[in-house]
Design a protein around this nucleic acid. Structure first.
Lengths: 157, 157, 157, 157
DNA sequence: TTTT
DNA sequence: TTTT
């Protein structure tokens, strides 16, 4: 234990999300995103390297991805690394590393569909099968001492 | 929207947590942690600067803090920044920035009480008032294709 | 020691950056960015809370901020927390927490000036007084084994 | 552009680092680290899943890894994802994802050699071939206004 | 003082 | 192949 496994990415979708609806109504979406970095090679030429990341989102986030994310969109992803191993069709053992996202924010960008959800932040909901409700934080108008603020307002979280 | 507010810290507690139990049984704990960085000043001398961060944890995480965290312990904190403003006792408007943690991992370290919880990872539970249940991820033995793994195992999340 | 102090933010500038050029040609820029989170209050009403963060960038990043960042722009910031204390004009001891950025990426957004730098990633350069050169990573075409890739290509970093 | 590729891990080394010294004196070290997460399966049984991550460090960080890191040690890693493709010995195209670390902090843990470097934070140096110097931040005693602190002290960064 |  |  005492472990942390966290990935933070901003990149563009290489394809529209592929969405599947499992039994029980659970949705899963997968899509690749590209990040790129530029550097100078030893001759001083500017070079660019693109990295592709396989993103997986579940439940409410998958539904959000299905509705709003398109090829070319820019997205902020927070998640964790997961490497699966499997036999390919020729019986060869293979590994595939993906990022299971639990936080996703649309940043617009190219081909921005802008169908109404530009720039929303979505979090994995803890509750199974639920939509991506904002499990988020809450306000406190903070009249009292900041470091000893104990009146639970609407949501003291 | 389209915003992200995330803080990641590893540091040592400057004091034991102060815990309060609000009505409804909600717990809040506060404690300062120190991070330090070393650098060379212009005369080439190694210098160190310590930064203090005010951590706030709610509910189950607060109970974990109360039970297991002591002055001197090393801890990993993931949370978000929050600046409260308030009037001090002299009526002066003041600001106080704190980190509301939603993920906390004990890393041991000095004075390690080691009372049974060395190195646990704890997450803010979405459900109000609940203990810090692992709202965490799940396994999939992954016999099938990694990128099209659709049989929901125990927990397909 | 053994400490980490890291902040990751995506938000919008509340004002144009204020830039100062110190002796030695070192530039410093400061600007506030807003992050906001929405939540439901106990009556089920959607509420929003905005958090303001004071960003400080030095040297090359400050020059980038001066040239390209405007009020309203969306920006990704990676940096560290720093709390300064000072006496205000009335001799009162005050604290101010800011984020010293060492990585900055423009994300566009409203009022996007688009004057040629949409979406650049900039890193704090380690070398004092230098412009924000890309201290970034490098390529390796990776013909050989991935886990034992030892031919230093252009830049083996 | 406008991309971010960041990984943050805390885990334990599964093996001692393998270090290679390339021509030009550049060092590369590789080692696997494990992160684990626990969850409850549908029958309510506590389960654990371990994830393995291949870490690569260059230059000064590699030398630090060589000297101080041992199988079993706990380490904080900050880096970026990189997927290499290569032909294996049978001519099969394979992919391997690794984390190129640019920040590493030893957290102690089991088998803690404690040979003098418990808990150091090390950063990738921008300068090629240099040792892992602290390219880190700097102090400012902050007598003046926090938000308009313009006297460059020792290191105004 | 931003943005949706 | 680690750790609890």
């Amino acid at each position: 234990m005492a472990s942390v496994n966290k990935v933070i990415l901003i990149g563009n979708l290489g394809k529209d999300p592929e969405v599947r609806h499992l039994e029980g109504g659970i949705a899963v979406a997968r899509f690749p995103i590209a990040t790129s970095e530029s550097f100078k090679d030893k001759s001083g030429q500017k070079q660019e390297r693109t990295e592709w990341h396989n993103i997986v989102v579940w439940r409410g986030l998958a539904e959000v991805a299905e509705k709003y994310l398109k090829k070319g969109n820019s997205v902020y992803i927070e998640g964790r690394l997961r490497t699966n191993n499997y036999q390919d069709k020729d019986g060869i053992q293979r590994y595939s590393t993906e990022i299971v996202a639990d936080n996703m924010t649309m940043l617009g960008g190219r081909n921005e569909s802008s169908g109404g959800a530009g720039g929303g932040n979505y979090q994995e909901s803890a509750a199974p099968s639920s939509a991506a409700t904002s499990s988020g934080p809450a306000g406190n108008t903070g009249k009292s001492s900041a470091f000893h603020n104990d009146e639970p307002d609407d949501l003291p979280f």
